[in-house]
């Protein structure tokens, strides 16, 4: 699958983040290894999105360190972090509605100065629907297509670490299946993925490693398989079968 699999790509140590007086993250530590799919699951307000935002440099952190490829990246600007290969697919897709599909993809590669044509072709190969709608304004796409565009846009930076914030949010089950198929494809291409999901079932099935977040602190962690079979996870996030 991936040559460099097994190397530590991202390491978070005792991360604290506050919004005003409210502590959103109360000291979480997690590791992401190259080539893995790591998923964070948890209820609303557990701090999943905050974790991703802290990594991207979009929210300031209070204490703790974030190490990426051996270097400390907390305190860097979002631009620096993006250019080091950490890209985010934001929650709720957030494509640029008044830009065409192609322009959205070009914006994704905004910090790159080299030829991006091969990457555009690559995204169009992954999502043929986007190619058909290349000149259409992104605001006119369906929810699923917008999610594909959001993923494609993030891929334009050639990320080493792709962070996806609730990619299944508000999508029909069939479309969700497509999205997870894409996640597997990207994984096979060697991209490391940090996936935040409320759809714990689907997320744990693709995950190499999974963490449960509970109101700002880490709960149990393990491989996706382990967590799928863990009774407490089953009860809280997977919906225990009625006995």
């Amino acid at each position: 699958m991936n040559v460099e699999k097994g190397l530590l790509l991202l390491h978070i140590d005792d991360l604290h983040v506050s919004y005003g007086g409210i502590e959103a993250l109360k000291g979480i530590s997690l590791d992401v290894y190259k080539g893995d799919i790591v998923t964070l699951i948890g209820a609303n307000g557990a701090g999943k999105s905050t974790t991703l935002r802290a990594i991207s440099g979009l929210v300031p952190i209070k204490s703790g360190t974030i190490t990426y490829e051996g270097g400390v990246i907390d305190g860097q600007s979002p631009q620096q972090i993006v250019s080091e290969g950490i890209c985010m697919v934001p929650e709720g897709r957030r494509v640029f509605p008044n830009l065409t599909v192609l322009e959205n993809l070009r914006i994704g590669a905004y910090l790159r100065r080299d030829d991006i044509q091969p990457d555009i072709e690559h995204v169009y190969d992954l999502f043929p629907r986007l190619k058909e709608r290349s000149w259409q304004l992104a605001g006119t796409l369906s929810g699923g297509e917008q999610q594909m565009l959001a993923v494609g846009r993030a891929l334009m930076m050639r990320p080493k670490l792709l962070m996806m914030d609730e990619p299944s949010l508000g999508l029909a089950p069939l479309v969700i299946r497509d999205i997870f198929r894409i996640i597997r494809t990207l994984h096979d291409e060697g991209i490391t993925i940090l996936l935040v999901e409320q759809n714990a079932n689907a997320a744990l099935r693709v995950a190499d490693r999974a963490y449960v977040l509970e109101t700002g602190s880490l709960g149990i962690s393990g491989t996706g398989e382990e967590l799928l079979n863990d009774p407490s996870v089953k009860e809280a996030y997977l919906g225990k079968a009625r006995s």
Partner: peptide, 14 residues
């Protein structure tokens, strides 16, 4: 135009 559409997403794009 991206900033006009969505500042946060634009920032996330670098």
């Amino acid at each position: 135009r991206a900033i006009h559409d969505d500042e946060i997403a634009a920032e996330a794009m670098g």
